[in-house]
Amino acid sequence: MEFLELWDSEVTRRLSSSDTTRLFTPSRRQAAVNRGAMTFARLTNCCTADAELTDDLLDGQAWAPISTPDSAFYGFSPQGLLVRRTHAVTGQVRDWPLVRRSSEFMDRYRSGWRTWCADPTKLGGGMPEEYVWWPGNFYGLSDEAPLTTWGRDGIVSVFPTPMPSQFPNESWRLVAVQWEVPVTMVADTDRPFVTSSSPSPRELDSYHPALADFAVYQLEKLRRDIAAQDANLKAFNEQVQRYLQTRRQRGGDEVIDTLGSLAAENVPQSLGAFV
């Protein structure tokens, strides 16, 4: 569905009201639909994008800030962080996946991993295997790096310390497969769930009406109609659950990601736990 169809006809039908001048103005409808897209993405993590975090890595460069001025980043997908290896002679480009670890895990099982030195020859290292993400600037020291480039969305650290020079003809970059807030729809022909690196996925077409459900849930607050709010929120949550169910893989390679379901478990659904 396109943006116009969502905020106009779909919302009008659910509201049973064609009011566009008093309560349900076009700008409110549009904002509510966009908020529906953001909420759906937040609960399902359906919007992922590739983003290069660094230029070519130097020997010993184990840290990278995640901040970008207009970043839509809000977390790492299970695919997490990759080392993109480019071979200068063959032209091959390969992505080398890293395993995400907590800093607690690293402190316990990777003795000496927190070792830094301006001179990389004094450090051991090689091909990175693991990474840690510190959100919220917990490890950024103001005297180590300028604040302007450091710490807004945290930093990632990889281990072992990268040493690209040990791999002849290769250059490495860190690439995040990240969850993103979808791009805000503005034009009538815009489509939902666009990210910084990909257009609106066809797979998500059948979930577009959920955005209208959420928008109406929002707009019904202006009429203080609790029954209508709950009905629309329920419809929205059903679509969220349907999406999460379809994404669940069977078998031993399942990636457990409980963000959406945790939100559902912890708060009574009848009270609109999802939003």
């Binding site: 995640i66 901040s67 001025p69 809000y74 977390g75 959100p135 600037n137 103001s142 604040l147 807030v181």
Partner: peptide, 11 residues
Amino acid sequence: TDTASSAWLRP
């Protein structure tokens, strides 16, 4: 640090 708002918290 008074850096810009954290983008990852926007949702």
